[in-house]
Every structure is written in structure tokens, then in C-alpha cells.
Amino acid sequence: MNILVCISSVPDTTSKINFVDNDSKFDINGVQFIINPNDEFGLTKAVWMKQSNNASVTVLTVGEASVETTLRKCLAIGADKAIRIDCLPKDGYSVAKEIESHCNDVSYDIIICGRESIDYNGGIVPGLLAGFLDYNFVTNCVDLNVDGKKAVFSREMSGGTEISECELPLVVGSQKGLVEEKDLIIPNMRGIMMARQKPLDVITAKGISSLTEDKKFIKPEPKSEVKLVKANELDQLIDLLENEAKVI
């Protein structure tokens, strides 16, 4: 079974969010990049499936050479090979088109992408890919079991969990729950050494144009100071919520 895990390289959660070039670009100065957390849950699940389903795991990212560090980390975690489609990602649409083009050349039984990235929060790539390729699709996926050509999986929805089944191929939007945080694999020295020997192929991008463009980023207004209410004056809190904030 062939599994493709699509990886987005994102600023670490604790990064300072600043913008440059007239607030049109994210300022990468001093920012540490990590594997998008939702992708990492999916990658870990895929690595488990090497054992349980005799799967071969390829990781793919659309990005410039600087993201190869993130791909090497994925290899150290346990992916078998890596692919970088060489271009600066513009929007979810163009990224998904580039991935689609690769998937028309190499067929995968399961394609895993994080349900959304923690930087642009688009939540678009897995759905677009499934639509482009006419594959089955589940997002917010919290459980996945594959037996032969059949998958049984769960997704989190408002007010519950839905369990369903389908035939492969399947696009999965992964999130926490597919594996737990404690299950995430921290690469050991052997993994890191082996990762250096594993193939990392660079593919020329198709140069697909984007459909959306971030024209300008705006940071929220600085927050006004918290209004503290004494623990024995809760009537005042209720009054503030009722008459000032008007939320109860």
C-alpha cells in the first residue's frame, strides 16, 4: 500500500507574528519552522501503518529548498522517501493542483494532509485534492483502519462522531485523535542518521497560478487591560456581562 503524507512547514506556535513588504508578507526573520501539527498526527499514523499494513510512506511538500529541513525530520520520524515540488507556495489552490499533478503520475491508496495548517488556516488542500482526483474524502479524521482495499474511519463533527467506510483511494484530513500527542515520534539518532540516506527528490513545479492572494495582513488592535472584579463582588461581574458586554 502506498501512502502519501502532504506536509506543510509552519512557524512554531510560539513565534512572533510580524509582516514585511507593506504588510503583504509574513516575516520569517528569527522564526523556527516545524511540521504542521495536524500533518504530524497524520504522519505518525502513516508510519504505524508501515507495520500494520505493510505500507510505504512518502512525504511531500510544495516549497523552496529551505523546507528540506522539515522533510528530513519527516524521514527521521519514519517516512521512506521525500518529495519536494520546487516552488514558493502561493495559495491552497495552487498547492493542491501541484500535488494533484504528482498524484496523476504516481498513484497512492491513501493521501493524508492535516485538516488545516496553523499559519494560513485555510483548511482547503485535502478537500480540493479529493475533489480534483475524485477520491473518497474524510476530514477531521480521528480514527482510521485499513484492511485490503477497504477503510473504516471516524470523523469529529459538531455534536458527535461519525463512523463510516469506503473503498480506497481515500484522502484523509488528519488531526489530533488519529494518534494522540503522546504517540508522536521524536526522532532518535539512528533515525536521523538513516534519514540522510533516504531519497529526497526534487520535482519541477507546473507553475500553476493561484486563485487567491493575501494583499495585506493586519494585526489585531492591542487588547485593553483586563477589568478585575473582586471575588466577593460577583454582582458587578454579572452587571458588566449584562450591560457593558451585553453577552448574557
Binding site: I118, E213, K219, P220
Partner: peptide
Amino acid sequence: TCFTNKAFSQTEVNS
């Protein structure tokens, strides 16, 4: 909203 609510984007849609 983007960057997990730490910023807003004015996004031009050409579709």
C-alpha cells in the same frame, strides 16, 4: 482570520 487568530488577511479572490 489567519495565523490562528493572531492576524487578519485581506484576501483577493480571483475565481
